[in-house]
Design a protein around this nucleic acid. Sequence first.
DNA 1: ATTCTTGCAAATCATTTGCACTTTA
DNA 2: TAAAGTGCAAATGATTTGCAAGAAT
Lengths: 136, 136
Amino acid sequence: MSFQTLDQFLREHGIKASYQRVRIFDFMRQTRTHPSVAQIYNELHPQIPSLSLATVYNTLNLFVEKGLITELKVEGDEARYDYPYEPHAHFVCHKCGTIYDVPMGTPQACMDMDGFIVKETQIVFKGICPSCRDKK
Amino acid sequence: MSFQTLDQFLREHGIKASYQRVRIFDFMRQTRTHPSVAQIYNELHPQIPSLSLATVYNTLNLFVEKGLITELKVEGDEARYDYPYEPHAHFVCHKCGTIYDVPMGTPQACMDMDGFIVKETQIVFKGICPSCRDKK
DNA sequence: ATTCTTGCAAATCATTTGCACTTTA
DNA sequence: TAAAGTGCAAATGATTTGCAAGAAT
């Protein structure tokens, strides 16, 4: 997807395609580490010196609202953001804090809830990852 | 479970049974509304005038650490706390913010993750609840 | 008596907001 | 050019912390 079509993609979702928004969205697409606002800012600020933290917050909130990305609040105080390639769950390591993707379809209960309109499903496993388990 | 045995229960989990801790734990047991720290404090403070907010924070963090309750960060900025009677998922309404319990066993994938030690599983559905859907 | 807990107030830190300026369509 | 987005700095609000006083064993 080129910048040209990223523009289009955002507009199709009712989002004005400012330079900052395109860059932040492109960063989310290319990053699978569930970055925090601070991480996104730290990566992009050197390349876009005028970029402000507030804009990163505004933009991510907008993307979440429009359903383009998902907000995860599973590790520490900072929200982490997830670009949903395909349905997947998350595993959070209690020791190192890493958030892993876990391939998985949407669970059955999703369909069984009479009267509830389910728009989003989040599944989070917490525990110890193989790397931390072995380190001892 | 009487106060007597609540004492015991806490001690069995390596927690000194102070008056505040017993009262807060008892409150969690009796409450199914996934209360926030502020709600717990507001309920108990009239009955325990000396109670401080910091103690509520300390105590809940301790209970989470010992695995007696679960912290949910799904609605707004405030953490919500869950007393896990039996395995269940949650449904969060985007409009009214209510957190509903959804009866449900532990999903299969839990068993399928080689090398990951899963200590906790959280499933959260988000959407519109029947009450908000009908209100229009 | 020593160790752990509490309560208060101040500190911290992520996130939001108000407003003047700039950009986009 | 009108409407919306950006950047900065200040404000907000949840949570944590330092420390002196109190309770438990």
